[in-house]
Amino acid sequence: MAEHRDDRPIVWFDIDNTLYSASSKISQAMGERIHAYFVSMGFSHEEASELHLKYYTQYGLALRGLTRHHDVDPLDFDKKCDGSLPLEEMIKPNPKLRKLFEDIDRSRVRVWALTNAYKTHAERVLRILKLDDLVEGLIYCDYAEPNFSCKPEPEYYIKALEKAGVTDPARCYFVDDNRGNVVAAIRLGWGHCVQFSEHGLEVVEGGRVKQIDNENLSDEKKSGSDVPVIADLQQLRDVWPEIFKPEV
């Protein structure tokens, strides 16, 4: 729970494939490790691919399915997958991104991170990107908690608000590269939501390579949610001008 009441709205940033570019290929490296984990459990490569996609599609996170349907230690999974990534070689600090965070007016809003990763991975990425001192709070998937929740499950967002002491979700700002995660937040009343999407780059979702295509959003539009899309986090200065310090 929040230590004290703070009525400032919160700007929630997703971490992976949002605070760094998908061109880093971290999602591909992660997909390979998750596939290898399935295979180490005795599944064939074909079965591993099918289950990986099934669990990602059904739960938003492959590990969520593994913990529900198999005797898997999520902390062991995290160590062999996220924890084994050579992140220091794959991502570097971005001075323009740090300046963006510095320009957010902390007298008006708080800045938190909201991720489906475990705490150690999230903190590691923020530290490498040199943003850890500019993020006031972190909501992560607590793999040590039985039956943990993750985006886009409603329980995850509800717990995030509780931990941050937020009473009015309409005052939340949220940016995530996964459209489903953004739509889920909108359905729960989060007032200012944006999808970060790098057109033309490839990511791995559910073990399958997917090209990011901002021009073909027909399936998502059928949900009835008109989600603003940005290709550069700097565009937040125009989308959410009220959260930034006045220009001098």
Rank of each mutant, 00 (worst) to 15 (best):
Asn94Pro: 00
Ile104Thr: 01
Thr167Asn: 14
Ser197Gly: 11
Pro93Cys: 05
Tyr118Val: 04
Asp76Leu: 07
Tyr56Arg: 07
Leu75Ser: 09
Ile186Ser: 02
Ile15Glu: 13
Glu102His: 10
Phe77His: 12
Asp213Lys: 03
Leu75Met: 11
Trp112Arg: 15
Asp232Met: 06
Cys141Val: 13
Asp105Gly: 03
Asp16Leu: 08
Asp238Ala: 14
Val125His: 13
Lys96Leu: 05
Ile212His: 13
Ala185Gly: 05
Arg237Gly: 02
Trp12Ile: 08
Ala144Ser: 08
Leu75Glu: 14
Pro146Ile: 04
Gly207Lys: 04
Asp133Thr: 07
Asp219Thr: 09
Val166Met: 11
Glu136Phe: 10
Asp105Glu: 07
Gly137Asp: 08
Gln28Asp: 13
Gly200Asn: 05
Ser23Pro: 00
Phe148Ala: 06
Arg208Pro: 00
Arg110Val: 00
Glu155Pro: 00
Ser197His: 14
Trp112Asn: 11
Ser107Trp: 06
Leu126Ser: 05
Leu201Ile: 02
Ile212Lys: 14
Asp105Ala: 09
Leu188Ile: 07
Ile243Thr: 06
Asp71Leu: 02
Leu236Pro: 00
Glu153Lys: 10
Pro154Trp: 15
Tyr156Gln: 09
Ile15Val: 06
Ser44Met: 13
Tyr157Leu: 12
Lys159Ile: 06
Arg187Met: 06
His35Lys: 14
Asn216Phe: 10
Glu215Gly: 03
Tyr56Ala: 06
His4Asp: 04
Phe174Cys: 01
Leu85Ile: 01
Tyr157Glu: 07
Ala48His: 15
Ile26Cys: 03
Leu87Asp: 04
Val204Asn: 03
Glu153Ala: 05
Tyr140Glu: 09
Arg171Asp: 04
His4Thr: 07
Leu188Asn: 11
Gln235Tyr: 02
Met30Gly: 05
Arg64Phe: 02
Val39Phe: 10
Lys99His: 11
Ala113Lys: 05
Trp240Gln: 03
Pro95Asn: 05
Leu114His: 13
Asp103Trp: 04
Gln28Ala: 04
Val209Trp: 12
Phe77Tyr: 14
Asn116Asp: 07
Leu19Ala: 06
Ser218Ile: 10
Glu242Thr: 05
Asn181Pro: 02
Lys221Arg: 15
Pro169Gln: 15
Asp16Pro: 03
Leu201Pro: 03
Pro246His: 01
Phe196Glu: 01
Val209Leu: 13
Leu51Glu: 04
His4Met: 06
Leu201Lys: 12
His45Thr: 09
Ile186Met: 09
Gly189Ala: 04
Asp16Tyr: 11
Leu138Ala: 01
Arg124Val: 03
Gln211Pro: 00
Arg33Gly: 02
Pro9Glu: 08
Asp76Arg: 08
Asp82Trp: 15
Phe77Gln: 14
Leu19Cys: 11
Ser225Lys: 12
Cys193Ala: 12
Arg124His: 12
His52Asp: 05
Glu205Trp: 14
Tyr140Phe: 04
Val182Met: 10
Arg108Asp: 03
Ala36Gly: 07
Lys130Ser: 02
Gly224Ile: 10
Leu236Gln: 13
Leu61Phe: 10
Asn216Ala: 11
Glu162Gln: 04
Asp177Glu: 13
Phe196Lys: 13
Tyr55Met: 02
Leu217Tyr: 14
His192Leu: 00
His69Gly: 01
Glu32Met: 08
Asn116Tyr: 01
Asp103Ile: 02
Cys141Gly: 09
Lys92His: 12
Asp219Val: 08
Cys141Leu: 02
Leu63Val: 08
Val203Glu: 15
Cys141Phe: 01
Val183Gln: 12
